[in-house]
């Protein structure tokens, strides 16, 4: 099996797919870094030279005053206390919370890339894994070997998973390395709040707690890898079903983009939550942003994605193993 996977990786590498992906990431990260830099500059100009420390101290005093008030619910008090701890950390460690370091850039980059950009990169590899062999005719030479068909597809799937890992790693490393040139490389220990649970209009803050940024980033990378794997699996299925890579790309792109649009308008269409494409923004659950449809949770979204992934994997294998090749 390792020889088969080697074959598939060889083809991906020699088609220069991975280089293209790395180049796209590098260019985009550089672009966003510059944009972010301009924005921070603008912000600094507008706010004048006000010392951020004085601002932070002001906010802390404010929080402390509010905590004094007796007419406050217990949960709210707890939340404010956590906020207070976070602010104090910034002050003690001399961290300007509005001036991002490379890890913060990396975190927001992943958050913004998870539902469209990363899936797109995965598609670059996955879309033609099978369809290009079918349209070029090389599939015939591939399938007349003493290797069962499911093994051939499995080797392609493993190569895809390796490529997804490569994409995640490249995104993480490049977004850190490039943005660090401008924003500095520190900030992995910045405390972030997580554990918000949106309930209707409100935010349940019962479980809110602080975690260091590096942990937060690892969680995000994990979720992004999960999303990318599912999108890759779906793309692989389409690649098995269609002979034309363009068709695979088209269908997948349409699905992803419709997901981005639907997320903004399906709040009253309950059953839309079973579509895979409105479940892609897993990192929003960490931030505590309201989900597109009420009642969606991290667990729910991951289950939906996993079911879609497993079903398409099954379809891909069954069709690939049984189909007549012309």
């Amino acid at each position: 099996m390792s020889k088969l996977v080697y074959n598939e990786m060889l083809k991906i590498v020699r088609k220069k797919r991975l280089w293209v992906i790395a180049a796209i990431v590098a260019v985009l990260v550089a672009l966003f870094t510059y944009a972010q830099y301009r924005e921070t500059e603008e912000l600094r100009k507008r706010l004048g030279t006000t010392d951020w420390r004085t601002q932070l101290q002001q906010q802390i005093v404010d929080l402390q005053n509010r905590l004094q008030s007796p007419s406050m619910s217990e949960e709210w008090r707890k939340y404010l206390q956590i906020r207070l701890k976070q602010q104090q950390y910034y002050l003690e460690h001399n961290v300007n919370p509005s001036a991002p370091g490379a890890p913060t850039f990396m975190r927001t980059f992943i958050e913004n890339a998870i539902d469209l950009f990363l899936p797109l990169l995965v598609m670059v590899v996955a879309a033609d894994l099978v369809s290009s062999e079918a349209s070029a005719g090389t599939i015939k030479l591939l399938l007349v070997r003493p290797v069962k068909r499911w093994k051939v597809l499995l080797s392609k799937y493993i190569a895809l998973l390796l490529s997804v890992s490569f994409i995640m790693l490249t995104t993480a490393v490049l977004s850190y390395a490039i943005s660090g040139l401008v924003f500095g490389y520190g900030g992995f220990h910045l405390p972030l709040l997580t554990g918000f649970v949106p309930q209707g209009e409100d935010l349940n803050t019962d479980n809110v707690h602080m975690i260091p940024q590096w942990k937060y980033i690892l969680m995000e990378l994990g979720l992004a890898a999960f999303v990318s794997t599912v999108v890759g699996t779906l793309t692989l299925m389409l690649s098995v079903l269609f002979r034309s890579t363009a068709a695979v790309m088209g269908v997948m792109l349409a699905a992803l983009i419709s997901g981005a649009i639907l997320s903004n308008m399906v709040s009253s269409w309950q059953s839309a939550k079973y579509l895979f494409m409105v479940n892609l923004r897993l990192t929003d659950y960490l931030k505590g942003a309201a989900p597109p449809i009420e009642g969606m949770t991290l667990g729910f979204s991951m289950t939906v994605l996993a079911v879609w992934g497993l079903m398409s994997l099954a379809v891909a294998f069954v069709v690939f193993a049984r189909r007549d090749v012309y």
Binding site: K11, R14, K15, A136, T138, K140
Partner: peptide
């Protein structure tokens, strides 16, 4: 036709 991988 004997289709091979042209990039190899």
């Amino acid at each position: 036709n004997p289709e091979m991988y042209p990039y190899l």
